[in-house]
Lab assay of single mutants.
Amino acid sequence: MATGGRRGAAAAPLLVAVAALLLGAAGHLYPGEVCPGMDIRNNLTRLHELENCSVIEGHLQILLMFKTRPEDFRDLSFPKLIMITDYLLLFRVYGLESLKDLFPNLTVIRGSRLFFNYALVIFEMVHLKELGLYNLMNITRGSVRIEKNNELCYLATIDWSRILDSVEDNYIVLNKDDNEECGDICPGTAKGKTNCPATVINGQFVERCWTHSHCQKVCPTICKSHGCTAEGLCCHSECLGNCSQPDDPTKCVACRNFYLDGRCVETCPPPYYHFQDWRCVNFSFCQDLHHKCKNSRRQGCHQYVIHNNKCIPECPSGYTMNSSNLLCTPCLGPCPKVCHLLEGEKTIDSVTSAQELRGCTVINGSLIINIRGGNNLAAELEANLGLIEEISGYLKIRRSYALVSLSFFRKLRLIRGETLEIGNYSFYALDNQNLRQLWDWSKHNLTITQGKLFFHYNPKLCLSEIHKMEEVSGTKGRQERNDIALKTNGDQASCENELLKFSYIRTSFDKI
């Protein structure tokens, strides 16, 4: 039985969820670079991206490699990797027998973001014989899940209580170790020597080791999670996991709180800001991140802002960003909400898709409305799209047979046209069989910064309504002859009103 693990408890099935942008060198404390989270699957090609990484700022997932063999891993080693800020997950990587050479110096898994409450997941690794993470000293947050690894031993010899604050939620089941077939031998045991430290858990006094050649490092209890030197002297209180010299914040392997210019500090002093819960960055760093993602459509890219001495992905609820200094300031009234469309555009074809934009005031991208039916549609669209004030790209209304009016965009005031449909149009209306009105132009103002209007096959939309939009939106004169079809717009509506004058002759039985 794995020490510190839980057996036999019912657990939810383990679901495996399925960018080499360097964020800056980590400095003297770390020998390499800070790398983003990685999802490495199918083959070993991307694994080489770990070569210079000291910190993975995010998670590391290595999974679904069915053609790899043990010899493929023999020359692979990433000794610079010290810390993973989120979680480490391995799933069905064939041929991998140990992690001792792959990650010989991995010391800390912070667990800032977890995989279903777990910071370390080893699942269905069919050839893994031992973990071998002999320098792993601290899992700051989260638990361990090690399950269905039929060859995995050296679990009962690990004292997880020396690595985690609590072992109650560890789930370590259905491994070879369960069948008591392992016969784990710690260093020196074969020669009758006791080389590794022994600890007591559940009444068992057991030597602690990761492999037959690597003991588990056990520091004096007084050192807590700070770690200790090879001689057993406690590291500085700002260290986490390990250090090369005692009581020196510049000799830590990793930091308990924050890293700044080669030393570990309790908090980031001005003019620095907390970033990702582990390091200090200056304003320029946060500003660069903001600008890199301002026009990016890459998933996970955030326009970072500053709030409460932190550089964070977005302002919290009730705050909006001051564009001059990136500071989050309290909103006066309802907060603006910028919604970034991942692929640059979004099609609204149902109430469900409209709900995804609920509360958005600025759309960074283009909207395509293609709704053919739905219950209580006008009210639903207004509830979900009615706060949109600005669209950076274009607005396209296409084959939306259920629409009679666009009044559900009740606050839309600006279409920038930074991206144009077919390279020309910022407003595009095609084949809307029941569209009769755009907006009530006596109450609604709309500016279209650039781009043209396109109207074709809107049989109940009168040309007068379209011409009014040209005047109000500032697009009059931009359109070419064929942009607004004269014969297919309003051709099934009563669009022309003329005053009919009647004269009559009164007659009676005795007068003409």
Rank of each mutant, 00 (worst) to 15 (best):
L50Y: 06
S237A: 13
P269A: 10
I56P: 00
L76C: 15
I163A: 01
V55M: 10
S143V: 11
F123G: 10
V93R: 01
C209L: 02
D288T: 07
V253Q: 03
Y94K: 11
L99S: 01
N149W: 00
H214Y: 03
R297Q: 14
G188M: 15
E49F: 03
N308E: 12
G95F: 08
C315Y: 02
N202Q: 14
D169K: 12
M137T: 07
I185A: 15
P36E: 04
N170Y: 06
P334F: 15
I172E: 02
T199M: 03
C53E: 00
F91N: 13
Y134L: 09
H226F: 15
I201A: 08
V144Q: 01
H274T: 15
P79N: 04
K310R: 07
N282W: 00
I56N: 00
Q299C: 09
C315R: 00
I158P: 05
T267L: 03
E147P: 00
N170D: 12
T68W: 14
N170G: 06
L332F: 15
T320Q: 10
M125D: 04
S317L: 11
C301D: 03
G227C: 10
F78R: 02
C243K: 00
V108T: 14
D169E: 15
C328Q: 00
T85I: 06
C219K: 02
W278Y: 14
H307L: 09
D277I: 03
L332E: 15
Q299L: 09
H274F: 15
I82P: 00
C243T: 00
C196L: 11
K148H: 15
D169P: 13
Q303K: 05
A190L: 08
L240T: 06
Q299E: 05
L136R: 01
E130Q: 11
R113W: 13
D72N: 14
D72F: 04
K310V: 03
A156G: 11
E151T: 02
T250P: 01
L136P: 00
V253A: 13
F91V: 03
E231N: 08
R298T: 14
Y272L: 06
D86R: 03
K191S: 14
G37C: 03
D178M: 12
P330L: 10
F275T: 04
Q61N: 07
H302T: 10
P104H: 00
I56R: 15
H59I: 03
G142P: 00
E57P: 00
S213A: 03
F115I: 03
K176G: 14
Q216H: 10
L89F: 10
D75T: 07
E97H: 12
V200L: 06
L131I: 14
K129Y: 06
T157G: 06
P334V: 08
C215G: 03
H28W: 07
G58P: 01
L233Y: 15
T250L: 09
S166P: 12
L89M: 15
I62D: 00
T250Y: 08
C255Y: 01
P249G: 10
L120C: 03
N43S: 09
F103P: 00
T250C: 06
P336N: 09
L289A: 07
R69V: 14
E33K: 05
C215L: 06
V121P: 04
Q204Y: 13
E130L: 04
Q276G: 07
E51I: 13
D75W: 13
H59T: 05
C53N: 00
F103S: 00
M83Q: 08
Q204A: 05
L102R: 01
F116G: 08
L233R: 13
N149Q: 03
K80G: 13
P336R: 06
H48Y: 04
N117G: 10
N295V: 01
F283V: 15
G333I: 08
D184A: 14
N282T: 13
E57Q: 07
P70L: 10
Y319C: 15
L164G: 14
L81S: 00
L327W: 09
N282I: 15
Q299H: 15
P246R: 06
R297L: 09
G188T: 05
N195L: 10
L326P: 11
K67P: 12
D247A: 12
C219R: 02
L131A: 15
A119P: 00
N202T: 09
N117M: 06
Q303W: 03
N309D: 09
T85N: 04
D39V: 10
S161F: 11
K129W: 11
G318W: 10
V206S: 13
C239K: 00
K224Y: 07
H59E: 13
N105K: 12
S213P: 09
C228S: 02
S54N: 15
N257D: 04
G142H: 01
C35R: 01
N308R: 08
G203D: 02
C264D: 00
P249V: 03
N309C: 04
V144R: 01
N195M: 12
R69C: 10
K129A: 10
K294A: 15
H274N: 03
S166G: 10
T157R: 13
E168A: 14
L260I: 04
Y319P: 01
F103T: 01
G188I: 14
N202M: 10
T250E: 10
S284P: 04
G111L: 01
G188H: 09
M125R: 00
R46L: 03
E97A: 09
C219E: 02
Y304K: 06
C239T: 00
T140S: 09
S225G: 10
N150P: 12
P70R: 07
A119E: 00
V200W: 06
T68D: 10
P246A: 14
L90S: 02
H28E: 13
R298K: 08
V200G: 02
I158G: 02
G203F: 13
C280D: 00
M83W: 02
E147F: 14
C53Q: 00
G111T: 00
R92W: 02
S237G: 14
L136S: 00
P220H: 07
L332G: 14
P270Q: 09
K191R: 11
S213T: 07
T140V: 07
K191M: 08
G111P: 01
F205L: 04
H302P: 07
N138R: 15
V144A: 09
T189M: 14
R113F: 05
C255K: 00
S161P: 01
N135M: 15
P79I: 03
R208S: 12
T229G: 07
C53Y: 02
C228N: 04
L102Y: 01
P313Y: 04
I201H: 14
L90A: 03
N117K: 06
A198P: 10
F115T: 05
S98M: 02
L50M: 13
S54R: 12
G183R: 12
H28Y: 03
S244W: 07
L289R: 06
I201F: 15
Q245N: 13
T68A: 10
T140Q: 07
I158M: 07
N322A: 13
C153S: 03
N322S: 15
L326W: 01
P246V: 07
Q204H: 03
H59Q: 09
I312L: 07
P246L: 04
F103M: 12
C311S: 01
N42W: 11
D277H: 11
L164M: 09
G188Y: 15
H28R: 04
G333W: 15
H214G: 04
C264V: 00
E238M: 09
E97I: 11
S324P: 15
V265R: 02
Y259C: 15
G232C: 15
L60E: 00
R141C: 03
N322T: 06
K224T: 10
I185C: 11
C264E: 00
C239Q: 01
T140P: 05
F205M: 13
L44Y: 10
C235R: 00
S161M: 10
G132F: 00
N282S: 14
I109W: 00
C315K: 00
E57R: 05
F258R: 05
C35W: 00
I62E: 01
K148V: 10
N43Y: 07
D177R: 11
E180T: 09
Y272S: 13
F285P: 01
F66P: 15
G333C: 13
G300K: 09
D75V: 13
P31K: 10
T85K: 04
Y304Q: 04
I306R: 01
L64W: 01
C153V: 01
H48L: 12
Y171A: 13
Y273W: 12
N43D: 12
C186T: 07
N138H: 15
L136M: 02
N322L: 15
S143G: 13
D247S: 09
G241M: 03
G232S: 11
S54L: 05
T199R: 06
T85S: 10
E124T: 14
V144P: 01
G37N: 14
N42T: 12
C209P: 04
C280R: 00
D86W: 02
N325V: 06
I82D: 07
N242E: 13
C219S: 05
A198V: 05
I158R: 06
N150D: 03
L332N: 03
Q303I: 12
Q245P: 02
R69E: 10
L99Q: 00
F275A: 04
D72S: 03
